[in-house]
């Protein structure tokens, strides 16, 4: 079942086609099925972050439409959009994910707090997620005092707390070493496999992308191609690298 569908998205920064304007997205059409685990890859400046922001309603497209769970989010505005985001979507960013003045636990329950869920519900949820991502021992610590990997797992927990239809992640492993990256990607795998959540992530990291079921390549604001995982992760990784070479973007020297 298709959970997200976009049609011909165009995003122009800096005024309409005037001088100094950038066409970050140039007619992107994409559809994602429920329970899919999709990576978006592409060279720097190709429009990945822009795409993610438009898909998640953080940014408005200049033209085109985005619909999630049958709702046209490109037509929503302001607070309706914010409400939709916190009920239907989860977010993990590269950095500045957590509020420094809140403990890990408080960060996780923040979306539930906004939703005015009951205390019992919050406690239960935190407990479950803490165990799932093995962060129950650091729940009462402040972000400043926990590792980057633990911070990202906390952020993933927060993204899941309201049981979203889709989780968006922009370079969630960007700041992490390969071991922590693997842990985070396994977390995403878990939520796709065990909770049936749809995950859409943007990454530079071939290794991270190889965890996904599908990789969409974009270049100059347009979808270039996409590949679907068929065999093992290792084989998938190799074919992603081949694709990137064709794309002419940066590749990892492995």
């Amino acid at each position: 079942m298709v959970i997200m569908e976009t049609e011909n998205i165009v995003k122009v920064y800096g005024g309409a086609s005037g001088e100094g304007s950038t066409k970050a997205l140039d007619g992107v059409s994409l559809s994602v099925n429920e329970g899919e685990f999709v990576a978006i890859m592409g060279p720097s400046g190709s429009g990945k972050t822009t795409l993610l922001n438009v898909l998640s309603g953080i940014d408005q497209p200049s033209s085109g439409s985005v619909s999630i769970s049958g709702q046209e989010i490109s037509e929503m505005t302001g607070d309706a959009l914010a409400l939709f985001r916190r009920r239907q979507l989860g977010f993990v960013f590269q950095e500045f994910n957590l509020l420094d003045s809140l403990t890990a636990k408080e960060n996780i329950i923040l979306p539930m707090v906004l939703e005015k869920k009951s205390t019992a519900e919050m406690e239960e949820k935190v407990q479950g997620l803490g165990e799932l991502f093995e962060i129950d021992s650091i729940l009462d610590k402040y972000p400043y005092n926990i590792s980057g990997g633990q911070q990202q797992r906390t952020a993933v927990s927060r993204a899941l707390v309201n049981e979203p239809a889709i989780v968006f992640a922009d370079e969630p492993t960007g700041n992490l070493d390969s071991k922590s990256s693997a842990v985070i990607m396994e977390c995403f795998e878990k939520i796709v496999n065990e909770l049936g959540t749809t995950v859409l992530l943007v990454t530079h990291d071939v290794f991270a992308a190889s965890y996904c079921q599908k990789v969409v390549f974009i270049k100059d604001g347009q979808i270039h191609s996409s590949i679907v995982k068929k065999g093992s992760r290792k084989e998938f990784l190799n074919s992603i690298m081949d694709h990137l070479a064709v794309l002419g973007g940066r590749t990892h020297d492995i």
């Binding site: 998640s56 953080i58 302001g78 607070d79 914010a82 409400l83 939709f84 985001r85 916190r86 009920r87 979507l89 977010f91 960013f93 500045f96 994910n97 509020l99 923040l110 979306p111 906004l114 927060r158 993204a159």
Partner: peptide, 12 residues
């Protein structure tokens, strides 16, 4: 800005 991204409304 981050809170807005995760769905805090301007009213809140």
């Amino acid at each position: 800005k981050n809170l807005y991204k995760i769905g805090m409304t301007s009213k809140e």
